[in-house]
């Protein structure tokens, strides 16, 4: 088992290197730091001295790969590739283009993101799985057909509308909760409840339908027929047999999402003014802060790869065939 974990972890390393190179190519090779400087300074103030000043202030004046002004290792470390890209591996994100410490900002803004994302995931799972089970019980009935139609309808509405109309109805018309904002500790509840509600609702259509499909596939299997011939009642089959077996694909599908919860939700956070990593990313995009974007892309990939690792592990834990086959 341990050797399996180690092998999987080692397999993740080249992917991280690939992501790193991709990010580097995107941000430094396609567009030179000079282009970025001109973009930041605006066409009006564009002159060679200003561009140089901007580059020196942020450390973009170094050559890309090889610095001939130094000797020894410094020839390779005093380059953009090393300072801006290789340092990401030790989570040294450096400073944003406006001069703030990115690592500190991320560590601060992670918690509001989690406070929003974790309840959304858990409540969403609970509701979607319960509804899907109910539909599987009443499969091929009128209720099932209407519910599936509703799911498709819910899926077809853009997430933006859920937020805009939700804010309009609950905050402006009914005045139940504040429109946006955030507070520390338990006081944040009144700010979080509406975004959680809306996110759960907007994910309900796709989620319920997906889990229903999984349940129905499971119901078609032989062991269900066997259980039915033994005289197990239909709800009994669903709860005892189908739910247990279907939870394996469902939970392993969820595991990959868990690390990404840190990244937060871009749109929801920015609409509700929640100071998490999602709104951090949106602000960076709107300010065209390349340093923050670079860090977030890398961080997101690391978290996704951790998610993949966790998925492999959970498969190995619940399914001995994976474990033994690989060992």
């Amino acid at each position: 088992m341990i050797s399996y974990i180690i092998r999987r972890t080692l397999y993740a390393l080249p992917i991280l290197v690939g992501v790193n190179l991709l990010v580097f190519a995107l941000f430094f090779v396609v567009n030179t730091p000079d282009d970025m400087a001109r973009m930041q300074l605006g066409v009006k103030y564009e002159d060679a001295a200003a561009v140089e000043r901007w580059k020196t202030a942020l450390g973009y004046q170094l050559p890309l790969f090889y610095n001939a002004d130094f000797t020894g290792m410094a020839r390779f470390t005093r380059t953009i590739f090393y300072t801006k890209s290789v340092r990401l591996f030790v989570f040294d994100f450096g400073r944003s283009d406006s001069g703030r410490d990115i690592g500190y900002d991320i560590s601060q803004r992670m918690w509001p993101s989690l406070a929003l994302a974790v309840p959304i995931l858990l409540i969403g799972l609970l509701i979607n799985i319960s509804l899907a089970l109910l539909l599987a019980l009443f499969r091929a009935s009128l209720l099932d057909r209407i519910a599936v139609l509703c799911c498709v309808l819910l899926m077809s509405v853009s997430g933006l509308f859920y937020i805009i109309y939700g804010q309009f109805v609950f905050s402006r018309l009914l005045r139940l909760v504040p429109i946006s904002g955030f507070a520390a500790g338990l006081a944040s509840l009144k700010f979080l409840i509406l975004p959680i509600l809306i996110s759960v609702l907007s994910g309900m259509g796709a989620g319920t339908r997906w889990y229903r499909t999984i349940f129905l596939e499971e119901i078609g299997k032989d062991y269900v027929r066997t259980a039915r011939t033994r005289g197990v009642s239909e709800p009994g089959i669903l709860y005892k047999h189908v739910l247990g077996n279907a939870l394996i694909p469902i939970l392993t599908g969820v595991v990959v999402l868990i690390p990404l919860l840190f990244m937060g939700s871009l749109i929801t956070e920015s609409f509700f003014g929640i100071p998490g990593l999602g709104s951090y990313t949106i602000e960076a995009i709107q300010r065209q802060d390349f340093a923050i974007l670079r860090s977030m892309v890398f961080l997101g990939s690391v978290l996704y790869i951790i998610g993949l690792l966790l998925t492999d592990l959970s498969y190995a834990l619940v399914d001995p065939r994976v474990r033994l086959g690989e060992a």
């Binding site: 992501v19 990010v23 990244m263 990313t281 977030m296 892309v297 997101g300 996704y304």
Partner: peptide, 9 residues
């Protein structure tokens, strides 16, 4: 590698 980069980013 491509899939591991969050799409929107």
């Amino acid at each position: 590698t491509l899939a591991s980069v969050p799409g929107i980013l």
